[in-house]
């Protein structure tokens, strides 16, 4: 197996990882960004970014591409759509194997694995994705012209997307597990005054039904236990995000009850030489700007750590 030594390994190429790579490479440290998916992470999933300071408006894809080019221009190595295995976070040398043929070794490692859209994880969901089950209103909304759909969730994304989907659908039903919405007041007001929107609270979908495409759902009232069968054309799911930390479960890295990485304000984890940045970190707010800030701090902390080792 080929071995490569670098100063810092960065796992994850979203806004946090790219920023960390940029800072490290610019400081003349050798850094590699390793991502098992697409460079840009959740950033590329954002249609329009209008609140990133210094840029009036851009697409998430464009912003991610610019960050990628910046990191590369400073000399940061970037590998995407790869398989990662045999991760070792402890001891002086941190290691990870890429595509079963290259072992990267470094004294410091930054975990910037980000988050992902949460799935309902009920029967039929994965099988009917793209055949009636969707996670993107702007992508798939026009397939549901004059059709009846459900939207799952009670946060800002869910309610805003429900309103936007009324441009296409004849009827939108929001189903939410709690007895109230978590969204901002203005989003709730928009929903309540929209005549095409119906609301079902304290209920959850338990199964997606259909052979070739979604035909119906089963849902349950969580208060009464009563179950319902509802013929439906489409379901859009917006129930938040979860941290991409599966690869660290069972390791000695400290995670909180939500499986997010616990760190101090310098992004130091409980393991020596291991830092964290971005949406996988235990914190209150998750924005592109906070990911960029995390990436900056993690890189500077990693540089301090490397200097202290000499």
């Amino acid at each position: 197996m080929e071995e490569k030594n670098v100063d810092v390994i960065i796992i994850g190429g979203g806004a946090a990882g790219l920023t960390a790579g940029m800072y490290l490479a610019r400081a003349k440290s050798s850094a590699v960004i390793l991502d098992s998916g697409t460079i840009g992470g959740q950033l590329v999933l954002t249609h329009e970014v209008a609140n990133y300071p210094g840029i009036v408006t851009t697409s998430g894809y464009q912003l991610a591409n610019t960050m990628r080019q910046q990191a590369k221009s400073f000399g940061c190595e970037i590998k995407s759509n790869i398989t990662l295995s045999d991760l070792n976070l402890e001891g002086e040398s941190k290691t990870v194997v890429v595509n079963n043929n290259i072992r990267y070794k470094a004294k410091a490692l930054i975990i910037a694995t980000g988050g992902r859209s949460r799935m309902l994880n009920v029967p039929g969901e994965a099988r009917l994705k793209g055949k009636g089950v969707s996670y993107c209103a702007t992508c798939d909304g026009d397939f549901f012209q004059d059709k009846e759909i459900f939207v799952v969730g009670g946060g800002n994304s869910s309610l805003e997307e429900a309103v936007s989907l009324t441009k296409y659908a004849s009827k939108v039903t929001i189903i939410h597990q709690f007895d109230h919405f978590q969204a901002f007041k203005h989003a709730i007001e928009e929903v309540k005054k929209n005549p095409k929107i119906n609301i079902i609270l304290q209920s959850k979908i338990t199964e997606f039904l259909g052979d070739e495409k979604l035909e119906a759902i089963r849902y349950q009232n969580l208060k009464t236990g009563e179950e319902f069968h509802q013929p439906i054309d489409g379901v859009f799911i917006f129930i938040g995000y979860e941290a991409n930390t599966d690869m660290f479960h069972g390791s000695s890295l400290k995670l909180n009850e939500s499986k997010e990485v616990v760190a101090d304000e310098l992004m130091k984890t409980n393991l020596t030489g291991i830092f964290v940045a971005g949406d996988n970190r235990a914190k209150r707010y998750r924005q592109i700007t906070t990911a960029v800030a995390d990436g900056t701090i993690a890189a500077l902390s990693a540089l301090d750590f490397l200097n202290s080792q000499h």
């Binding site: 697409t38 954002t46 249609h47 697409s59 759509n81 992508c139």
Partner: peptide, 17 residues
């Protein structure tokens, strides 16, 4: 596809493989 969030990752994968 389009230049949207569900399509870009697939283009990226195609480019990488």
């Amino acid at each position: 596809g389009r230049m949207g969030p569900m399509c870009l990752p697939v283009y990226d994968i195609m480019g990488d493989i």
